[in-house]
């Protein structure tokens, strides 16, 4: 199977989040980055499918030069080669733009399966995967908890609300967005890190792909971001103990929602 895995690099969970002066983004200089967690699960699923059915795992990532760190991590874990779509246009808010870039970069290759994480840990739109499926003309399924390949077809388990699951059969090629927790991602091995050095990373730019960042910028505009203001309020509940206790229980249930 020829599998594409889309990997995003996001600010590390323990990074300090400070706003830029104009409050339109977080200060990049303060950040360290890591691979988007759901994408790590998608990569692991791809590697397991390759181990079971043979084939190739290719990683694609959009972003400036720093995303090569996430790409190398994926190559260290066992991906065979990578495509780096080198873009620092600041149109990171637009899932359509991201999907368009990946679609144009991989269109000439016939992938049997495309995997993405369900959503990104930073913006959480959960859109890039499904738009990419549409642009590539592939069927897709989201929130996937299990993947089986049987006789050239897919059988996948989707997570629904309230502890319910749904089994879906699909043709190949398809695109799946993978839910976190589907597997236990492997660690990169020392030998894997060494081997990654010689693996191919194809670098392409939006201009080479015929995708215009200006159009993406026109579709979305971020006006302001802010840190939620924390408030603290102390309230005294008056009245006889029995009534006060009842009021307290009601408040804990309805307002604080801790009971």
């Amino acid at each position: 199977m020829k599998i594409l895995v889309c990997v995003k690099q996001v600010p590390a969970k323990d990074s300090p989040l400070r706003l830029t002066e104009d409050s339109t983004w977080i200060r990049d200089a303060d950040l360290s980055y890591e691979t988007n967690e759901p994408d790590a699960f998608a990569l692991e699923e791809a590697l397991r499918l390759k181990e079971k059915h043979g084939g190739e795992v290719v990683v694609a990532s959009v972003g400036p030069a720093r995303v090569q760190q996430a790409i190398r991590e994926a190559l260290s874990k066992g991906a065979d080669r990578a495509i780096h779509i080198d873009d620092d246009s600041g149109s990171k808010l637009d899932s359509f733009f991201t999907a368009q870039l990946i679609a144009e970069a991989v269109r000439s290759e016939a992938f049997d399966l495309v995997l993405t994480g369900l959503q990104s840990d930073d913006l959480g739109f959960a859109q890039s995967g499904v738009i990419l499926a549409e642009l590539l003309g592939l069927p897709h399924a989201t929130i996937i908890m299990e993947v089986e390949v049987i006789d050239g077809r897919l059988k996948v388990k989707r997570e629904l609300e309230g502890g319910w699951f749904q089994w879906v059969e699909m043709p190949l090629p398809s695109l799946l967005t993978i839910q976190s927790g589907i597997n236990k991602p492997r660690y990169a091995t020392l030998k894997g890190i060494k081997a990654a050095k010689t693996k191919e990373i194809r670098r392409v730019t939006p201009a080479e792909l015929g995708v215009k960042p200006d159009e993406a910028a026109a579709r979305n505009q971020l006006r302001r971001i802010y840190v939620p203001v924390k408030t603290k309020k102390t309230e005294f509940i008056e009245g006889p103990p029995k009534e006060a206790a009842a009021k307290l229980v009601e408040k804990l249930q309805r307002e604080a929602r801790v009971l």
Partner: peptide, 17 residues
Amino acid sequence: VPTKEERTAIRESVRQL
């Protein structure tokens, strides 16, 4: 001699583990 990127990758991978 490992490259700077390789050393960073080793550091990051151990950190992840």
